[in-house]
Design a protein around this nucleic acid. Structure first.
Length: 613
DNA sequence: AGCCCTTTGAAGTGG
DNA sequence: CCACTTCAAAGGGCT
């Protein structure tokens, strides 16, 4: 295992910690890495730009990326967030293996303070743990700064890093969630005071004026129990001191820090009648889209963490015990399927008992996988760079981009996905993906397995016609992307899911993937003779589309031990082969090979070689 | 209104 | 163990 930080730690968690707290001594290296990755992105970007219908200059595009411009369609907050996320991602580039600009917030993940998975919005007790995990490194002033819980001075606000606020607002969803957010925030603050602090003393946080917490919305009363450093046991509901293991391994919090601080929320608690800050009716608009928030985090700060998911608390009572209609109402209104209630369909009168029961069950969404996280993050960017609108087309592009990502970059997402799953499992120990089966209307799939070429052409031809042009227009040409180590890595060996994405292939190897989609689906695994589509892909198996689109033969490599490793249909770059042959696929391997990666970036594809085992 | 499409990955089911 | 299915996000397109 490559060492990311010179530390040992086969344990992933250990690695995580190291990743989060890299030595400054590595800054230089990271900078170069950032530069390298940025170059990758630039390449990709420029290629996209060149081929996009936009015809916009690279510089323009770059500018747009670095300085997200207010877009008229900002009504979609999610999009905006993603957009910002992307900007951040570019800025930080590979947060997993590189030091973030704000060392203190390497993986600040701030969900909406709502349950990230409960579509109904119930904020389970465990969600608090989740929040702590997600906000482990808040830039919090020392206890002294928090001494006076009723002193919401700008100074206090100013002591929160912009990063933190950025994250906060990026994750923020208007209407009624701010209260909970603050509550949870404060909870986190109470346990993170010992975390390295990044202060921007000279700043009065720009967002300050946007915050309004009149007593109308928030009664500065006795801090709710959940605001204490304790964590409610998800199962028992009994407050308890969080076990270090419960906190994200990324954020090694000093146990001693827990519970030492007076309730920090005080600085946010306005005095009676005070309206120090105001929140725009439409909710927050992030003024600093490019502030350092780990892009990956932003992925987590996704729409899933919407206030809609806010739990419905009986009697309109905030979970904290503070009655606050504003917190609940909007959520309820927007998302009727609040779990204590019924999902939309259940709102119909007199549902059957069975159905009722079923409906009562909250819909816990699946944790996003690496690609989904990536998609969320990159979609906005792709959309911005292309004229494409259809998600199907966008997704095709994203799929290709995904494969063209460097190992580090992919590893970042795999790691994030792994964390997501971990958190998810912790939040919902009993949850199973199966629980969601059937919730969605069964997708109508062609019953004809591998329909005849004719059948195939009938429907998919249209698809090709429909999406292909766009793809050609927007997708980055393989040659333009420097990364040849584009294979996903085994998401952390230790804890990661068994699904260890094996090395993939260079984009260059399959420039026509989309155009050859129909034929591509027929290609078989180079060695196994099995369809290369990989069983994991629904589309590849039952529908004539998708991953089978790559016409080139696939070479199973580096699957060492990963039975579920995807089968890649494109030729594997020599570098990837080399790597995978040497050791089990892992993000960390890739990290270790980063320097080599840089070299390979400039290598012609001709290097693609099958190395012997 | 609701499904389709499209992507990858995770996890479930069934043989 | 393998093959296959479902779902996760997204949003225009289609019925």
């Amino acid at each position: 295992m490559p060492q990311l930080n010179g530390g040992g730690g086969d344990d992933l968690g250990a690695n995580d910690e190291m990743i989060s707290f890299k030595d400054e001594g590595e800054q230089e290296e990271k900078i170069s890495e950032n530069v390298s990755a940025e170059r990758d992105l630039d390449d990709l970007k420029s290629s996209l730009v060149n081929e996009s219908e936009n015809n916009s200059s690279s510089s323009d595009s770059e500018q747009a990326e670095r300085r997200p411009q207010p877009r008229p369609d900002l009504d979609s907050y999610e999009k905006t967030r993603d957009y910002f996320s992307e900007a951040l991602r570019r800025q930080q580039d590979g947060g997993f293996f590189k030091s973030p600009h704000y060392p203190g917030y390497p993986f600040l993940m701030i969900p909406d303070l709502t349950n990230p998975y409960l579509s109904n919005g119930a904020l389970s007790p465990s969600a608090r743990t989740y929040l702590q995990m997600k906000w482990p490194l808040l830039d919090v002033p020392g206890a002294a700064g928090l001494k006076d819980p009723r002193s919401p001075t700008p100074g206090h606000l100013g002591r929160l890093s912009q990063t933190w606020w950025c994250s906060l607002f990026c994750s923020y969803k208007p209407h009624g969630t701010h209260m909970k957010m603050l509550m949870l925030m404060s909870q986190h603050l109470s346990v993170s005071n010992k975390v390295p602090v990044v202060q921007h003393a000279h700043h009065v946080h720009p967002l300050t004026p946007l915050i309004t917490y009149s007593n109308e919305h928030f009664s500065p009363g006795t801090p709710p129990s959940h605001l204490s450093p304790e964590i409610l046991d998800p199962k028992t509901g009994i407050p308890r001191t969080p076990h270090p293991s419960e906190l994200s391994p990324y954020y090694p919090l000093s146990p001693g820090a827990v519970g030492q601080i007076p309730h920090p929320l005080g600085w946010l608690v306005p005095q009676q009648g005070q309206h120090m800050y105001s929140i725009p009716p439409g909710g927050f608009r992030h003024p600093y889209p490019t502030l350092a928030m780990n892009a990956s985090m932003s992925s987590l700060v996704s729409s899933r963490f919407s206030p809609h998911m806010m739990p419905h608390h009986p009697h309109g009572m905030h979970q904290t015990g503070i009655p606050h209609p504003a917190i609940v109402s909007p959520a309820i209104k927007q998302e009727p399927n609040s779990h204590d209630h019924m999902s939309p369909s259940m709102h119909s009168k007199s549902p059957g008992p069975a159905k009722k029961e079923e409906d009562k069950k909250p819909h816990i969404k699946k944790p996003l996988n690496a690609f989904m996280l990536y998609m969320k993050e990159m979609r906005a960017k792709v959309v911005a760079e292309c004229t494409l609108k259809e998600s199907a087309a966008i997704n095709q592009i994203l799929g290709r981009r995904w494969h063209s990502l460097s190992r580090e970059e992919q590893a970042k997402y795999y790691e994030l996905a792994r964390k997501e799953r971990q958190l998810h499992s912790q939040l919902y120990p009993g949850w199973s993906a199966r629980d969601n089966y059937g919730k969605r209307k069964k997708r109508k799939r062609d019953n004809k397995p591998d329909s005849t070429p004719e059948d195939f052409s009938i429907r998919n031809k249209n698809q090709c016609v429909q999406y292909l042009p766009s793809e050609k227009m927007c997708d980055s040409p393989a040659s333009s992307h420097g990364s040849m180590l584009d294979s996903p890595a085994t998401p952390s060996a230790a804890l990661a899911s068994p699904a260890a994405p094996a090395a993939t292939h260079s984009e260059q190897a399959q420039p026509l993937s989309l155009t050859t989609k129909p034929e591509g689906r027929l290609h078989h695994h180079f060695l196994t003779g099995k369809p290369s589509g990989s069983a994991s892909s629904s589309s590849s198996s039952s529908s004539s589309s998708s991953s089978s689109s790559h016409p080139s033969i696939s070479i199973p490599i580096g699957t060492s031990g990963s039975h579920s490793a995807p089968i890649f249909s494109r030729p594997i770059p020599f570098s990837s082969l080399h790597h995978s042959m040497l050791s089990p696929p892992s993000p960390f391997h890739q990290a270790a090979l980063h320097s080599h990666h840089a070299l390979f970036q400039s290598q012609p594809l001709s290097l693609v070689t099958k190395s012997s085992d």
